[in-house]
Simulated scan of single mutants.
Amino acid sequence: MKFIRLFCFLSLLVLFNTKPLQGAEPEAVVDKQGNPLKPGEGYYVFPLWADNGGITLGRTRNKTCPLDVIRNPDAIGTPVYFSASGLDYIPTLTDLTIEIPILGSPCNEPKVWRLLKVGSGFWFVSTGGAAGDLVSKFKIERLAGEHAYEIYSFKFCPSVPGVLCAPVGTFVDTDGTKVMAVGDGIEEPYYVRFQKASTFAQSNNQDLSSV
C-alpha cells in the first residue's frame, strides 16, 4: 500500500510540473501569418497595432557613425535578418544575431546589432557588432497569454551568468528620434509583430534607407 501511495504521489508531481524538459526544442518565432521565421529571410518589424513605424537604421546623437536602430513612424522600415547558431529557424529565448543590411550607407561598419553605451546605465541598440560577440547577443521573447501568439519583444539577455538582462524599449532622443535602447528609464519592452518582406505589398512609403 505504501508503494502504491508513493507511486501516485510521484505521478502527480510529474503531471503538475509545467517546467520544460531539459533539451526541449525552443519555440519558433512566427510571423503574422503564423509561419516560423527563417534565417536568411528579411522581415519587417512592425509595432503591435500598425503596419507602419517599422524598425530601420538612422543617425542619432551627434549625427555620426555608427548607425543606431530606430523606429521610423512614417515608413514601414527596413527588412531585418536573424540567425541562430545551428538552427534552421528562429527560436524564442535563444541568443540571436540580428542585422539590418542597408546598402549604400555612409557608415561602413557591419550592420549587426550591438549595445553601445551612451551614458551611465544606458545603452543604445546600435550597429558595428559581430556574430558571437557578447554585446551582439539579443533574444526574442513572446508575450505571455493565450491570445499573444504572434506578439514579441526584444531583450538583451546573453546566455552568460552575471551579464545584463533587460528589455529593449524606446528612447526619444533630443530631436524626437525614437531609438531602440536598454537601461535606466527603459522599463517597458517594445512589442512587435513580424511580416515576411517578400510577402508584404510594396508601397511608396518603403524605407530603403533612412540615412
Rank of each mutant, 00 (worst) to 15 (best):
F3C: 11
R5A: 15
R5Q: 15
L6N: 15
F7W: 13
C8R: 10
F9K: 09
L10A: 14
N17V: 07
L21M: 10
Q22I: 13
G23I: 05
N35P: 07
K38W: 13
G42W: 02
G42P: 00
L48H: 07
W49G: 10
G54E: 01
L57I: 06
G58Y: 00
N62I: 06
T64F: 08
T64I: 05
D68W: 02
P73M: 07
P73C: 08
D74G: 13
T78C: 04
F82M: 09
S83W: 06
D88P: 09
Y89C: 12
Y89T: 09
I90V: 09
I90M: 05
P91A: 10
T92L: 11
T92G: 04
I98W: 01
I100V: 10
I100Q: 01
P101T: 06
L103S: 09
G104N: 02
S105V: 06
C107M: 03
K111I: 05
W113Y: 09
R114A: 04
L115F: 05
G121R: 08
F122Y: 05
W123H: 05
V125N: 02
G132M: 15
L134D: 13
S136K: 05
K139V: 12
I140R: 01
I151S: 12
Y152V: 02
K155D: 10
K155S: 13
F156W: 10
C157I: 04
P158M: 10
S159W: 08
V160E: 15
G162F: 13
V163A: 13
C165H: 12
A166C: 09
A166S: 14
V168D: 01
D173M: 03
T174H: 13
G176C: 12
T177P: 02
P189N: 06
Y190L: 10
V192R: 01
Q195K: 06
S198C: 08
S198D: 12
T199K: 14
F200Y: 08
Q206Y: 12
V211P: 00
